[in-house]
Amino acid sequence: AEKTGIVNVSSSLNAREGASTSSKVIGSLSGNTKVTIVGEEGAFYKIEYKGSHGYVAKEYIKDIKDE
């Protein structure tokens, strides 16, 4: 099942092309942005936001229960 997560940073969080800190940054998400978690790979979540996919470090995403 898809989960919703909240970007848990004070400034912004980089979204990357792949599940690695050396992957190209494809965008950034500001704190408290809601994202859909579609998968996980190592220390990263694969997320969907406004129709695009990217990878973000798990430690900066807070899971919330689907309402």
Rank of each mutant, 00 (worst) to 15 (best):
Y49S: 01
I37M: 00
G39M: 03
S28Y: 12
I64D: 06
V7M: 04
S22N: 12
K62P: 02
S20N: 10
T4M: 08
K65R: 13
G18A: 14
S28G: 05
K50C: 14
L29N: 00
V25N: 04
K62M: 11
K24E: 06
E2N: 15
L29C: 06
G54D: 01
I26C: 10
S20R: 05
E59L: 07
S30H: 11
I64W: 08
S28D: 06
T4F: 13
S11G: 15
I64S: 06
E2R: 15
V56N: 00
A57Y: 11
I26G: 01
K58Q: 04
Y45Q: 05
K34G: 03
T21M: 15
G39V: 01
S30G: 09
K24V: 07
T33D: 08
S52P: 00
G5Q: 02
G27L: 11
K34A: 06
E40H: 05
S28T: 14
E17A: 12
A1K: 14
T36D: 04
T4L: 08
L29P: 01
A1Q: 13
K58C: 04
E40M: 07
S11Y: 07
E59R: 11
D63C: 15
I61M: 03
A15I: 15
Y45C: 08
E41R: 04
T4R: 09
E48Q: 11
Y49C: 08
S52M: 15
V25R: 04
E41W: 07
G42P: 00
S30T: 11
I64C: 09
N8R: 12
K50M: 13
T36K: 14
D63M: 15
Y55M: 01
V38T: 06
E48N: 09
S20E: 06
S30V: 13
E2A: 15
S11L: 09
E67R: 13
G27R: 03
E2I: 15
I61K: 01
A1P: 13
K62N: 09
E48D: 07
G5I: 05
K65A: 10
S23D: 05
E40C: 09
K58G: 02
K62A: 10
D63W: 10
A19G: 04
F44D: 05
K58I: 06
L13P: 07
S22L: 11
S10N: 09
V25C: 08
E59V: 09
T36W: 12
N14V: 15
L29A: 01
K24P: 11
E2T: 15
T36L: 10
K34F: 09
E59A: 10
K34W: 07
I37A: 00
K50F: 11
K62Q: 10
S22A: 11
S23P: 02
K50P: 02
N14F: 13
N32T: 06
A1Y: 14
A57L: 15
K24L: 08
E40W: 05
N14Y: 12
V25I: 13
G54K: 02
I47P: 04
S23I: 03
S10L: 12
Y60K: 08
S30F: 11
K24C: 08
D66M: 14
N8K: 12
K24T: 07
V7L: 06
S12Y: 12
G54Q: 03
